[in-house]
Design a protein around this nucleic acid. Structure first.
Lengths: 333, 333
DNA sequence: CTGTTAGCGCATTCAA
DNA sequence: TTGAATGCGCTAACAG
């Protein structure tokens, strides 16, 4: 492998000059620049990134920590992050936190040890304090899907409460008054917020929230299955005409239970989901759901770094708004 | 940040000795080893990975190149790769090839420039020759989802042709004789192989393959929609009682078209998919499909590297077998 | 505008 | 078993 030294020899210039053209430093005469370029070409020269990082203490790498990699949620986010960063020749190192505090911390350490210039974090288990402390460290961090007031400018997030409100409000406006709720894990921030929104919509019409009509799911299809099975048992005592699920995967599981029991959806029961994952429009019935622009948030996190860390000139905004997508799984009473 | 030098000072030993204990070199006295360990602890010392890589020309990083990151397919694969590698303290750098030859090559260059010890490639557009050449280079590569005879020991793959055969064979055994096919992109290897399997099953019963009953989709839901729309038009002239789709996403799109037109599935039309993505068991009707152990293949690629590059003692096998999962979307005529 | 020089933090000979 | 010396390939003052 050719080194910067070989190039300088061939071009008849010094190491420093070669380094300057590599780094697009402007203080280089056009003629010498060309000589160097030719020499680099001739030798098939590629900079050694480790040497660059060691000498400059800038790795051009950013670590991305997500809860999971499978499932329909994080793929689009990762895709946007990779694309935006890659376009600026930064690379992304991935790590998975599994929604567990220790694993999340381990992953942060892991990424820090690897010399990442910055971290994009989608973490749930770790405390606000931990993240605030981390933000004071030497490595830039930006948070996705989480709002912490003290470091709000580093947070890219969706108005989850509003989305929860919209989902239930939609059913209310269709005439439903008895609405069940299958929630996400109580330890996840977004799950809590969505539920709060649900309750707010209810209270606006002076409808009391009934804990018996609420089930804590796991954000996966199985959670929807379990939740629906539970609710159907409750139904004898606590009738309901609609259910909102805290994400689309759980709707999918819940509906499968209903269909197996011979119920018709939406005639017998209306459903509203959350996230608007790609499948939502292809299942039957097509899902009414709250749009979650997760891929845009991923892109925005990357742009945020480009702007605030790598000094690129781009626009960023931190907060995203949910939007109700009406399809076929919900009808009026 | 403390350096190896600080540690050596505090421990009262030389740089070399500290380096030895970091790298678990055995030739170190137990007492001095402890002194060093204590000093490292006291200083909160973390090795600088760039310096390590520069000095040792081993980066402990592996590049993973996939076609896309969104969609239900690559998530599970990436998850397994990350987990297996992370357990051995290797990190993974991701890149996306978008099924385009130039982008795939760019990504390979990109990962190579980043000093990856090895590359895990799931590429479709690039030629066999390119990959064979690449395998002769200094950087170890392993292929997922692709079989190239000359470098077969580096290929982790599914018997796609057999899977295609099984899908159609299943319908045949249910009495279907007129079977339509929605294929994946003709430029993708696995799509071609699956189609070949379909044809083989047909020919076993002396049924002629009818190009008019075959549509080239894009492996996405939209492809299924387009394919089904086309086939339904053809149907007047070319009746059929079953459809096999080259992946589950296209089944999903295809079925949505049928339902919209008031058809009943599987009563009016049987469907068989491919891949067995998580949703397949939660949609209605539940999908009969060919299981594709994509996550196991991801894990195996990682293990292959652990064994062949990092000299770990693990078992690997290169070829995986498809398996028919019978559910509700297919019934006998 | 260009060259000289001194590290960046660590692994690895080679001696002792 | 340990230490001293050298260099991995590059960046960044500084000097000219």
């Amino acid at each position: 492998m050719a080194t910067i030294y070989d190039v300088s020899q061939l071009a008849g210039v010094s190491l420093a000059t070669v380094s300057r053209v590599i780094n697009k430093n402007t203080n280089v005469g056009e003629k010498t620049r060309q000589k160097v370029l030719v020499a680099m070409e001739k030798l098939g020269y590629r900079p050694n990134t480790f040497a660059q990082s060691l000498a400059s203490s800038c790795s051009n790498s950013v670590g991305v920590l997500v809860s999971q990699l499978d499932g329909p949620y994080y793929g689009p986010m990762m895709a946007e992050i990779e694309a935006a960063l890659r376009a600026e020749n930064k690379h992304v190192i991935i790590a998975v936190g599994h929604s567990d505090a220790n694993q999340e911390k381990d992953s942060v350490e892991f990424l820090l040890d690897r010399g990442c210039d910055a971290l994009i974090l989608d973490v749930e288990a770790v405390s606000d304090e931990y993240l605030i402390d981390l933000s004071k460290g030497p490595t830039t961090i930006v948070l996705i899907n989480r709002y912490i007031e003290q470091i709000s400018e580093r947070c890219i997030y969706l108005e989850n409460e509003l989305g929860g409100y919209m989902a239930t409000k939609h059913l209310l406006s269709l005439g439903h008054r008895h609405i069940a709720y299958i929630s996400g894990p109580a330890k996840k921030h977004d799950a809590i917020e969505r539920l709060v929104g649900h309750k707010r919509a209810l209270s606006e019409l002076n409808i009391e929230f009934d804990p018996k009509l609420c089930f804590e799911g796991d954000y996966r299809e199985e959670g929807g299955v379990d939740g629906m099975t539970y609710l159907l048992t409750q139904r004898q005592h606590k009738p309901f005409t609609a259910v909102v699920c805290a994400n689309d995967q759980m709707v999918s599981g819940a509906i499968s239970v209903c269909l197996e029991r011979g119920m018709r959806i939406p005639q017998d029961l209306s459903f509203v989901g959350y996230d608007n994952i790609p499948f939502a429009r292809y299942v039957s019935p097509k899902l009414t759901t709250v749009n979650n622009p997760i891929h845009e948030m991923g892109k925005m996190a990357a742009l945020w770094l480009l702007k605030n860390l790598y000094n690129k000139n781009v626009e960023v905004n931190n907060v995203f708004m949910p939007e109700l997508i009406e399809r076929e799984s919900s009808i009026s009473t």
